[in-house]
């Protein structure tokens, strides 16, 4: 399944809903989306990964890159994910310590620093 991307705004948060596979082939599109949002002044991002079927280290790299970009503007990047197979990759790489991971978009939107 290919990558699908859509964005919407809730207050000062921008929600990026990602679906399909984030891998070495599709990751550049997600990178571009995050770069564009930050260039647009959107510094508080919530990446909803509930519809992601596959994520590899290339995808992790893009998320880390996004985190760096928003942090440069005192922003935040929160993830929404409850899928065990995706969470496992964050745990293996230790990135659970880097990204706040929430069980729902509402929880992520309501979270404060």
């Amino acid at each position: 399944m290919d990558l699908s991307l859509s964005t919407r705004t809730e207050g000062d948060r921008t929600i990026v809903e990602v679906g399909g596979e984030i891998d070495v082939y599709t990751a550049p599109r997600l990178r571009e989306q995050l770069v564009d949002l930050v260039a647009d002044g959107k510094y508080h991002l919530v990446v909803d990964m509930e519809r992601v079927d596959f994520l590899d280290s290339t995808g992790l790299g893009v998320l880390v890159g996004g985190l760096k970009r928003v942090r440069a503007h005192d922003g935040s990047l929160r993830l929404v994910c409850t899928q065990e197979r995706i969470l496992k990759i964050f745990r293996i790489t230790g990135l659970t310590k880097v990204f706040p991971i929430h069980a729902s978009v509402d929880e992520a939107v309501g979270a404060t620093e």
Partner: peptide, 26 residues
């Protein structure tokens, strides 16, 4: 290769060792 998560956050892209680290973890 992936000794410190901070390495990853400081890097512009995921360093090449991360793929192998994921494999080793799996």
């Amino acid at each position: 290769a992936l000794t410190d998560v901070a390495d990853l956050v400081d890097a512009e892209a995921v360093p090449p060792g991360v793929g192998l680290a994921v494999i080793a973890g799996l």
